[in-house]
């Protein structure tokens, strides 16, 4: 495992920790899109279908369990926790995420490396992950006061896939047997590009020591 991949995973983990910290300590999920969280839970379920059958490393298995467990605990907090669920701003979270699911499923059935159940589900998870942040980005744009934890959450999430891209370049150059997964690369690039606008305002607000606010 190279440093880019590891750093990417840690960023991903950090984003989840930051979000859980906000929810657990502040008992608030203000500004967080439930729809994005639902999409991520679905992404993890479909991608980690091999969790009990395909052992790669202890690190791999533990991380999969952590991502699945955190995704479901976030959903539980936002939907069922009596205090947290009242801070969820349903009216601002209006993205039609079912269309994303449908579009990604159709695309996965059409464009994949191999036509098997597991491979199509894996491909679906890759496509869905690329666009899962959209409801969250729309919600951020509508929120006037984005708190630090929410801003950092999205920032870490964007950095994670960016680092994965460096990891793919590194593996492409160093591993003879590394398959040319162009499908993952294109999706990963789109996923990272979606954050470009957000990154710009995040860095700007950080440099100017101002509160983060996205233009409407």
């Amino acid at each position: 495992m190279n440093i880019f991949r590891f750093a990417g995973d840690m960023m991903h983990l950090l984003s989840v920790v930051v979000l859980l910290l906000k929810i657990h300590k502040m008992k608030s999920c203000a500004g967080i899109s439930l729809k994005t969280q639902e999409l991520y839970a679905l992404v993890f379920i479909c991608r980690y279908l091999d969790i009990f059958t395909g052992f790669i490393s202890l690190y791999n298995t533990i991380m999969k369990i952590v991502f699945l467990a955190s995704a479901f605990s976030i959903l539980w907090y936002m939907r069922s926790h009596k205090v947290v669920r009242q801070t969820y701003d349903k009216d601002q979270d209006t993205f039609r995420h079912y269309f994303l699911i449908l579009a990604c499923m159709v695309l996965a059935l059409l464009v994949h490396h191999k036509f098997t159940f597991r491979e199509v589900m894996w491909t679906f998870s890759i496509y869905l992950e690329a666009v899962a942040i959209l409801p969250q980005l729309v919600m951020l744009q509508r929120t006037r006061n984005i708190d630090n934890l929410t801003g950092n959450y999205v920032f870490f999430l964007g950095t994670y896939r960016g680092l994965y891209m460096l990891n793919w370049v590194y593996r492409y150059l160093t591993e003879v047997h590394y398959h040319h997964r162009w499908l993952t690369w294109i999706s990963g690039f789109i996923q990272t590009a979606l954050y470009a606008d957000f990154f710009y305002y995040y860095v700007k607000s950080w440099r100017n020591n101002e509160k983060l606010q996205l233009p409407a």
Partner: peptide
């Protein structure tokens, strides 16, 4: 091309 390709990324 091998038929089984382990997906070692998360």
């Amino acid at each position: 091309e091998s038929t089984y390709e382990p997906k070692d990324e998360l």
